[in-house]
Design a protein around this nucleic acid. Sequence first.
DNA 1: TTCATATGAAAGCTCAGCTAACATAATGAA
DNA 2: TTCATTATGTTAGCTGAGCTTTCATATGAA
Lengths: 285, 285
Amino acid sequence: MNWRDVPSLAALRAFDAAARAGSFSQAARELNVTHAAIAQHVRSVESDLGASLLVRQGRGVVLTDAGARLADALSDGFGQIIAGVKSVRADVDSRPLSITATHNFAESWLMPRIGKFWAKYPEIALSIVPSNKLVDLRKDGFDVGIRYGDGNWPGLETTHLLAADYTVVAAPGVVKTDQIAQSGATWFFEDAHQESQRWVREAGLIGPSQKSVTVSTLGMALSAVRAGGGITIAASALVSDDIRDGRLIALSQTQPEGIGYYIIHPPGVLSDRVKTFKKWLLKAL
Amino acid sequence: MNWRDVPSLAALRAFDAAARAGSFSQAARELNVTHAAIAQHVRSVESDLGASLLVRQGRGVVLTDAGARLADALSDGFGQIIAGVKSVRADVDSRPLSITATHNFAESWLMPRIGKFWAKYPEIALSIVPSNKLVDLRKDGFDVGIRYGDGNWPGLETTHLLAADYTVVAAPGVVKTDQIAQSGATWFFEDAHQESQRWVREAGLIGPSQKSVTVSTLGMALSAVRAGGGITIAASALVSDDIRDGRLIALSQTQPEGIGYYIIHPPGVLSDRVKTFKKWLLKAL
DNA sequence: TTCATATGAAAGCTCAGCTAACATAATGAA
DNA sequence: TTCATTATGTTAGCTGAGCTTTCATATGAA
């Protein structure tokens, strides 16, 4: 497509608006600029093409023959562009909001609450994809994500959701708070969380004779622990429900360390649906 | 036409180019920008619409479904716009170059030389409209003009063509150079040129008993003077041919005073035809 | 493995696009 | 006819959209 001899698109749009309005002032109001901007654009298109396109007549302007022909083409062209954009927006708005979250967060925090979201916003369909991978939101087609980390992901806007302190939990009666290492209780560790395991050892919360079992998900660890099978460590936010409801008791807790759960999305203006979901997340703490 | 929810036209054009090229780098070359500019625009359209449009695949990019649909609409839209501009340009290029010049200049300087222009540029049709009015080039549909004055016309580009000194002339033998005021020769003055008349009186070139006749055009004055009927004063450039050819002799001359003949045209890029004509004018002195 | 060519990303530059201000022109009401 | 209103015309000056520059990372061919 040869753009070499085409006046500026901004100028052509200004001319298009003036042509259809028959007035620089009216065109200015429609495009939210001053009449001076319209006038400058129109005259620059005229100068570029070497033809008069709009001439003053009374309190407005009228199209010359050349102007009428150009205006027809621009009307068609810009009409197609606007229609195409509108159509893509409509398609985007009609598919579910696509959300990615870590497995743990999805299972322990989001899914238990999602019913309330749907109750409040039945018109917003969601597609929740648990993934521990650092997915590329854009490439993989997600609108918004919840990620665990330090919040420093270049090219993304991040909003802090939950601090990442950890709590050691067990079912009531399984172990006394000050005798975690001396108890015979089994430690359940999630595979991926080497860091929290290291913390447990450095805090002296695991005895030499204590068994430890590594499982693949926090959900599995929590199932075992809820059943009185032992002790585990998890992000505090993910076990806060169990603690509140008395299914588990808090035995020990780390200090927050700048790591946490964050809402992430691409920069720029957010759609209403993403705004709504984000706002709900922040309130559902 | 609702532009409210439409991404920037520059960004849509960048996307259009990338979509058809399948490569940011190739699109950049086509639009004469860097690949970074293309990438920024494309990602900004994606962010605005909330949809992935182009994804990386190997060394290039491919369209998503949403991207393909938008690309179709943009291709149509931009195609119409470019075709419309091209059509108007073609029309402009097919009509004669429209030139306005003062009557005197047209008659005494331009028309005697225009044959040489047509000989050299037979493909450029001209429409020459003599007019002493300060015409509005744009409103009255002129491509270029020759005006007499100080060269200070806001909103126009001016190029000095001829200085405006004046020469007093008569046919050979009619009057001696140092006896203009003492001769009985009749002064012929052009109606509009009060200023040159004043100069003649202040220079003491007209005697108390000398008759003067006011005519409407310089051409009329020159006809009478060439026939030996008396003396006149004219812009030097306009009588240089008569002097060279011996039909008239120079009796006295004013100093140039910042007034002259100028080529005028609207600001901005000139079409090739206007450039050619202008260049020819400057060489035809 | 190396090299050429692609996209990704962010800091920083600059001029296209605009506003503000004032001038002039046209129209309509009194 | 005069005056108010609303239009376009024009220019100086501001600023952020659009871009470049630079460097990083990814891909594919040799």
